[in-house]
Amino acid sequence: MHFTSITAGLVQLFGGLVASMLIPGFIQSLKAKLQGRVGPGSLQPYRDLRRLWNKSTVSVSNSTLTYRIAPSVVATSMGLAVLVVPVSSLGPNWGVGHDAFVLGGVLALSRLALVLAAWDTRNGFSLMAASRDLTISIFTETAMLISLSVAALVAGSTDMQVMISRISLFHVWSSPAPSLALAAFSLVVIAETGHQPVDNPDTHLELTMIHEGMTLEYAGRDLAMLQWSGGVKHWIMLVMLSEIFLPHFQNAYLQLLCLPLTVIAICIILAIVESTIVKMRLLNVPRFLGLGTILAFMGILALKVPS
């Protein structure tokens, strides 16, 4: 028991803080393979980080502390999110609990920091990205909250550890609710991690990008923190998807063991999706995510329909 907790804690910290950069790297390399390119290896993000860490930061004239502090805030809140999201049904509390909606607040904080940094520099491209990001976030956050609510309703608690252990039970899946939540959350994962068809992580064309746009003014350690945060976000989303929404084992060890496999599987799917589906029009994204919300909502209805 105690030992399980420690293991889970180590996986949580190591996976979240260190290994998470592997995920975007892996997806990138996989995508390159699928597209018949050589492409960078999976460890490329770490090399980028090292390079950036040794460069000097840039400050923008007329900007305030907001601009300078934003990457630190983003990175901190992502680190906090790693602590909040459990990797198995057992694990240390870290003093912050595992509440699903606390996570929502933490993610919102990182979003605020980036958007305000964009306002601070008044960079038109950053602001365009910020504006788009916020617009999409209305739908992403809603879909995420509702799909988490379905999980919470199934589990009877908003504690994500409880969710993990309850949803692992077989009989839970006899109701359509968890499947609908899974569908919804998959869409959320795509949007939150900035993959096609919502966003294109590879582009640097100002008019098509969303997440990349907001980092446009940053360099050096600032940019390193932001890129690291992007990796962590991947980790958080994929862990939630695989541990909460996908069917999983009841045993905490098995959960921990399966986690890398599931994550890799999801990465492959993401890479395939990204290689095969074109980016959709910005104004269609809400429909895409609205679909997610509706699916999740139907999950709640499914739980509430008197049988």
């Binding site: 000097s56 930061t57 300078r68 630190s72 906090l80 520099t121 003014e217």
Partner: peptide
């Protein structure tokens, strides 16, 4: 966590900074 983390990272970040440039 938020305040201390931000503080530490901010300290780490600001050891070297280039001259202020106009918005790109």
């Amino acid at each position: 966590i938020l305040i201390s983390g931000t503080f530490v990272l901010f300290l780490l970040r600001s050891n070297r900074s280039a001259k202020a440039a106009p918005t790109w």
